[in-house]
Design a protein around this nucleic acid. Structure first.
Length: 338
DNA sequence: AAGACGGGGAG
DNA sequence: CTCCCAGTCTT
């Protein structure tokens, strides 16, 4: 890349627009790395949009190591979009066991119901209009299944591209621009996987720069290794002694006033999950008294009062994850058997 | 812009 | 123990 190119682009995109030096070499190096070290996820070689969708939704805020076995189980239970579309809520929630964020499972079924009627949108834009399919999931389906030039942007991609451009706190708009520019349009799926995989394995929050194949083009590494140790932190604090100087700390500015989740919010979330898991274990069609739940839920948190327990159940009902049995006195709850 | 929403693995 | 993860929706 020539300096004149940079200036020309900057005039259009703005003087501060982040760029990656040696982009073509970076693309080549990361694709080569991925060929050797990429993880062989089962949906990697599939062109079935349903496979891509299931994998992408499962991957939302969930590490791949946990997605793989869950993906196999889920597809065994619901091999096609048609099968999922016709499944009961209870069966879908049961198949989602261990994944968390259970509303994802219901949105996934809702998406399946849409595509079995309307067919699959092939463009990221159209995919994004479906509930539960955001920019990331839409880009996964569009690129993996349909070969569309859509850039997946997740936390890994943000970290890798941000560091390469020397812009660790990149804005969403600048990141979208940078990701689109970096996308290898000839093989978008491979490129997306390479970038995400690299962020998950090498360019991690505490990066393994000694194993990095693009370190020589990394603006973040360059800026960190150039100065002496005393110059590193701009706020005047020293980095930890045991950390190598070339390791880049991209820890967000959360040091003071780290947002601590209120205790009862954590407890509430915990007991929502515990309740669903308990309902999963009931015999199909079975239910349980709401007031009998608190002692059964285990206790990393203060045991919920009956009042809190009813509120938790109500929130699950509101989300469609549970139903109250109208005939039961006192109130009883179960998974929606549909 | 800020919350809500799980569960498990890594450090 | 804390932090983090192939995000998305709601307020």
């Amino acid at each position: 890349m020539r300096a004149s190119d940079v200036r020309a682009e900057s005039a259009i995109a703005g003087a501060t627009a982040p760029r990656i030096a040696g982009l073509a070499e970076v693309q080549r190096a990361l694709l080569a790395w991925h060929r050797r070290h990429g993880m062989g996820a089962p949906w990697r070689t599939s062109r079935d949009p349903y496979h891509a969708l299931v994998a992408a939704v499962m991957a939302q805020q969930t590490q791949m190591a946990r997605v793989l076995p869950a993906y196999e189980r889920f597809l065994a239970a619901f091999p096609t979009a048609e099968a999922l579309a016709g499944a009961t809520t209870a069966d879908v929630i049961r198949a989602w066991s261990g994944m968390g964020y259970n509303q994802r499972a219901l949105r996934l079924r809702a998406a399946a119901r849409i595509v079995v009627v309307d067919g699959w949108p092939r463009e990221m834009e159209a995919l994004s209009t479906i509930d539960g399919i955001g920019p990331f999931t839409a880009a996964v389906v569009a690129s993996f299944a349909f070969g569309r030039p859509a850039a997946c942007i997740d936390t890994n991609v943000r970290r890798v591209l941000g560091r390469l451009a020397g812009e660790e706190r990149i804005t969403p708009a600048a990141l979208r621009r940078l990701a689109g520019e970096a996308l290898v349009v000839r093989k978008p799926a491979r490129w997306n996987q390479a970038l995400m995989d690299y962020g998950a394995r090498i360019c991690t929050p505490r990066p393994k720069c000694d194993a990095c194949v693009v370190a020589e083009w990394c603006a973040s590494r360059a800026s960190k290794t150039r100065g002496t140790k005393d110059e590193l932190p701009s706020d005047g604090r020293r980095v930890a002694e045991e950390r190598a100087t070339y390791e880049i700390d991209t820890t967000p500015k959360r040091m003071q006033q780290r947002r601590r989740v209120p205790a009862d919010d954590a407890a509430r979330r915990y007991y929502r999950g515990r309740t669903i898991d308990l309902l999963r274990g009931l015999a199909p069609g079975g239910c349980i008294d709401v007031d009998a739940l608190p002692p059964l839920l285990g206790g990393r948190h203060p045991k919920p009062s009956l009042r809190q327990m009813r509120a938790i159940v109500a929130s699950l009902v509101r989300d469609g994850l549970a139903v109250l049995r109208p005939e039961a006195v006192p109130p009883a709850v179960s998974l929606p058997e549909d």
